[in-house]
């Protein structure tokens, strides 16, 4: 079933929505760092040590990320091959938005950012817990977060990446419902929610990075 056009699009939509759910949860926890160091440390410690989160949800998330970008590339290759001879004059902007036509570009930027994000947080975390077996310290998370945002260069990269994430979500979120066959009286509401979500969540992440850079 996954070999057909529609099944692949459904798979992209479902994996995308799964990642959006995770993004919302990640944003909520990160936002607590702005208001309460204690709450952020508590939640981070819970997420980092809970067995269900660590050994079921985390592998599922990594699988979701890998699946989404691999399928994205598979679809892109198929689409490129469907028109071997290109137009000399193609006015894409006359009938479709830039974001909808360039999901692969925004996706690659977000994927590159994920590489940096893993290097910044996930790799040190795995090293801390499962390679060096350092003693548990439930109060270390806030300090680690603030430390990462000392560098204005890193804050700038994070901000730019979240702008591209916003663009990716702007088309991807509502588009996933169309791929699942949902285009009805709720579509307008879904599109409005998409605009709000794709602006508020990335802007919130940028705010968190700048906040800790300024106050760290």
């Amino acid at each position: 079933m996954i070999t057909t056009t529609i099944a692949r699009k459904l798979a992209m939509a479902l994996s995308g929505l799964f990642l959006i759910l995770f993004l919302g949860q990640h944003f909520t926890i990160n936002m607590t760092s702005v208001f309460s160091e204690k709450t952020f440390n508590f939640l981070s410690h819970f997420m980092g040590n809970n067995l269900v989160v660590q050994f079921i949800l985390q592998p599922l998330l990594i699988l979701g990320v890998v699946f989404h970008f691999v399928m994205g590339f598979v679809l892109e290759i198929k689409n490129t091959r469907s028109r071997s001879v290109k137009y000399q004059s193609y006015k894409g902007s006359a009938n479709a938005s830039w974001v909808s036509r360039n999901m692969i570009i925004s996706g690659i930027v977000v994927l590159s950012f994920l590489g940096l994000h893993f290097y910044d947080f996930w790799v040190p975390e795995i090293n801390y817990k499962y390679i060096e077996f350092l003693p548990q310290d439930p109060d270390r998370y806030y300090g680690e977060l603030v430390h990462k945002f000392h560098s204005p260069f890193r804050v700038a990269i994070y901000a730019l990446s979240f702008v591209f994430l916003s663009l990716h979500l702007f088309h991807g979120f509502s588009s996933s419902f169309q791929s699942m066959g949902l285009n009805n009286k709720y579509t307008r509401g879904i599109k409005l929610f998409t605009v709000a979500f794709s602006l508020v969540i990335p802007a919130g992440f940028i705010f968190i990075a700048i906040f800790h850079h300024q106050n760290g």
Partner: peptide, 11 residues
């Protein structure tokens, strides 16, 4: 037939 996939651009 070798048509591409729909990416919902709306073009």
């Amino acid at each position: 037939e070798g048509f591409g996939n729909c990416t919902n651009t709306g073009a």
